[in-house]
Amino acid sequence: MIYIGVTGWGDHDTLYADKTQQKDKLKEYAANFPTVEVDTTFYAVQPLRNVEKWVNDTPSGFRFVVKAYQGMTGHQRGDIPFQTSEEMFAAFIESIRPFQESEKLAMVLFQFPPWFDCTKQNVAYLRYCREKMDNLPCALEFRHQSWFKQRFLEKTIDFMEKEKWIHSICDEPQAGMGSVPIIIKATTKDMTLVRFHGRNKHGWNASGQKNWRDVRYLYRYTVQELTAWKEYIEELHKDSKDVYVLFNNNSGGDAADNAKHFVDILGIEYENLAPKQLDLF
Rank of each mutant, 00 (worst) to 15 (best):
V6T: 10
W9A: 04
D13K: 15
T14R: 15
T14Q: 12
L15N: 00
L15R: 06
A17I: 01
T20V: 12
Q21E: 08
Q21C: 09
K25N: 04
L26P: 03
Y29L: 07
Y29T: 00
P34D: 10
T35E: 05
E37W: 00
E37N: 11
D39G: 06
T41Q: 05
V45S: 07
P47H: 08
W54K: 11
V55C: 13
D57P: 05
D57E: 12
T58M: 09
F62P: 03
F62H: 11
F62V: 03
R63Y: 04
R63G: 04
V66H: 12
A68H: 12
Q70Y: 02
T73D: 10
H75I: 08
H75L: 09
R77W: 09
D79F: 06
I80M: 11
I80T: 11
Q83T: 06
E87G: 13
E87R: 12
M88R: 10
E94T: 15
E94F: 09
S102W: 15
K104Q: 13
F110N: 00
P113E: 01
D117M: 09
T119H: 05
A124F: 07
Y125E: 08
C129H: 05
R130L: 01
R130C: 12
D134R: 15
L136E: 12
C138F: 04
E141H: 10
F148Y: 13
F152R: 13
T156Q: 06
E161H: 12
K162G: 07
S168V: 12
S168D: 09
C170G: 03
C170F: 14
P173G: 02
Q174F: 07
G178D: 11
G178L: 14
S179H: 00
P181L: 07
M191K: 12
K201P: 06
H202G: 10
W204C: 05
N205T: 05
S207Y: 10
S207V: 05
V215P: 02
L218C: 04
Y221K: 00
V223D: 14
E225I: 10
E231A: 14
I233D: 05
I233Y: 08
H237L: 13
K238E: 14
K241T: 15
L246G: 01
N248L: 03
N250M: 04
D254A: 11
A255S: 12
N258V: 01
N258F: 08
L266I: 06
L266F: 03
G267Q: 08
E271Q: 04
L273A: 04
P275I: 08
K276F: 08
Q277I: 06
L278C: 09
